[in-house]
Simulated assay, not measured.
Amino acid sequence: MGCDGGTIPKRDELIRTKQKPEQKDKAADLAARWKHCAISQEPLREPVMACELGRLYNKESALEFLIDRTKFECASSFEHLRGLKDLKELNLTENPSYSRPQSMKGDGYVDIQDTKYICPVVGIEMNGKHKFACLWSCGCVLSDRAMKEVKGDKCHKCGKPYQPEDVITLNCANEEVEELQSHMTQRRLQQKLDKKSKKAKKQKLETVPSESSLESGPSTSKQPKMEKPVTKDSKLTNGNKVSKVVANGSQKPSNGIIGATVKNPLGTSLDLPTSGSIQKDPKTSATYKSLFTSSDKAKNQMKGHWVTCNPYWN
């Protein structure tokens, strides 16, 4: 039954010791980081996107997060995401030997390290055991080993050139995150400077043609408005006012044309009749007088009946 003198207790049984902290399984931790979205913790599915700190996201969950941040409890750890400009769609290479995950059973073996994507140069699986990096200029994903073995300034997959600052390590350690944050701030400052320079160039291009058009003269589309002539004191001639125009220096009748002298565009002056009727003016011709209703032909002309509607007789 025990405690009859035959059992000897150990030190662990008599003294309470501090319990060791629980250690998480490294393989499960890597599988969670490399196979699941960092925001929604859902399995990764194409299109896959990455931020400037090397975290992986589903595009759907990233859009939901940008639209409404209150739905997610971990919104404070993703404050660096301001919009789609801060995310890059990845150009991944599929693993031809990848088998879809089946239902986990107790009697079967499930390979957790089997992944859907590999390095296009070396063929290493992207499961977290080896370092992988994303090129921010083109979005291609390559392993660290491939970039060290095949050195160059161009992408080994698409051939586009890139700079050392464009290399972003995916799911890196906490020590490397600070370096990525410094690169992120430098990149954003450079983008702001580029925008300001582009705006300044546009403003210069807009001002140059306007200055050249003013020097050459007024354009046909937009001509400057002519200033109205300023009139001075007027005189009365036969009951009609004749005003003097300051701009041209010629007299112009204001209410009528009787008893005034007007200059033609050609420069010659016209003496208008001083009398009240054009028919009494001896200088005008008979054909010119017949145009007016005060002529004899107009008085003797037959008028149409009020029943008819012929405009010729009106």
Score class of each variant (00 low, 15 high):
residue 9 P to V: 07
residue 10 K to W: 09
residue 11 R to C: 09
residue 13 E to N: 15
residue 13 E to G: 13
residue 22 E to P: 02
residue 26 K to R: 10
residue 29 D to H: 06
residue 30 L to D: 05
residue 30 L to M: 14
residue 37 C to K: 04
residue 38 A to E: 06
residue 40 S to W: 06
residue 40 S to V: 05
residue 40 S to M: 11
residue 43 P to C: 03
residue 44 L to R: 02
residue 44 L to F: 04
residue 45 R to C: 10
residue 46 E to T: 13
residue 50 A to W: 07
residue 51 C to T: 04
residue 51 C to I: 00
residue 53 L to H: 10
residue 53 L to I: 10
residue 54 G to I: 05
residue 55 R to K: 13
residue 56 L to I: 02
residue 56 L to P: 03
residue 60 E to L: 11
residue 61 S to L: 00
residue 62 A to K: 02
residue 63 L to E: 14
residue 66 L to I: 07
residue 69 R to T: 11
residue 70 T to H: 13
residue 71 K to L: 14
residue 71 K to H: 11
residue 72 F to H: 07
residue 72 F to Y: 15
residue 73 E to Q: 12
residue 73 E to F: 08
residue 74 C to H: 10
residue 75 A to N: 10
residue 77 S to N: 14
residue 79 E to R: 15
residue 81 L to D: 01
residue 82 R to G: 13
residue 90 L to S: 01
residue 98 Y to G: 00
residue 105 K to C: 10
residue 107 D to A: 08
residue 107 D to M: 08
residue 108 G to Q: 13
residue 114 D to R: 11
residue 114 D to C: 07
residue 117 Y to E: 03
residue 119 C to H: 06
residue 119 C to E: 00
residue 124 I to H: 14
residue 127 N to T: 03
residue 130 H to D: 13
residue 132 F to G: 02
residue 136 W to S: 04
residue 138 C to R: 03
residue 141 V to R: 03
residue 143 S to H: 00
residue 148 K to P: 02
residue 150 V to Q: 10
residue 156 H to K: 15
residue 159 G to H: 05
residue 164 P to M: 03
residue 165 E to H: 03
residue 166 D to G: 02
residue 170 L to E: 00
residue 171 N to H: 05
residue 172 C to L: 09
residue 179 E to I: 10
residue 181 Q to D: 09
residue 181 Q to L: 07
residue 182 S to P: 00
residue 187 R to I: 05
residue 189 L to E: 15
residue 189 L to C: 11
residue 196 K to N: 11
residue 198 K to C: 07
residue 198 K to P: 00
residue 198 K to D: 10
residue 199 K to T: 03
residue 210 S to N: 12
residue 221 S to Y: 12
residue 224 P to C: 04
residue 224 P to H: 07
residue 227 E to K: 15
residue 228 K to N: 11
residue 228 K to H: 08
residue 232 K to I: 03
residue 233 D to C: 06
residue 233 D to N: 12
residue 240 N to D: 08
residue 242 V to S: 04
residue 246 V to L: 14
residue 248 N to A: 08
residue 251 Q to Y: 11
residue 254 S to T: 15
residue 255 N to I: 08
residue 260 A to P: 01
residue 262 V to G: 00
residue 264 N to A: 13
residue 266 L to V: 06
residue 266 L to P: 00
residue 267 G to K: 00
residue 271 D to V: 02
residue 274 T to H: 06
residue 281 D to W: 04
residue 283 K to V: 01
residue 288 Y to F: 15
residue 291 L to N: 07
residue 291 L to K: 13
residue 295 S to E: 05
residue 296 D to A: 12
residue 296 D to R: 14
residue 302 M to N: 08
residue 305 H to S: 15
residue 311 P to T: 00
residue 313 W to H: 15
residue 314 N to V: 07
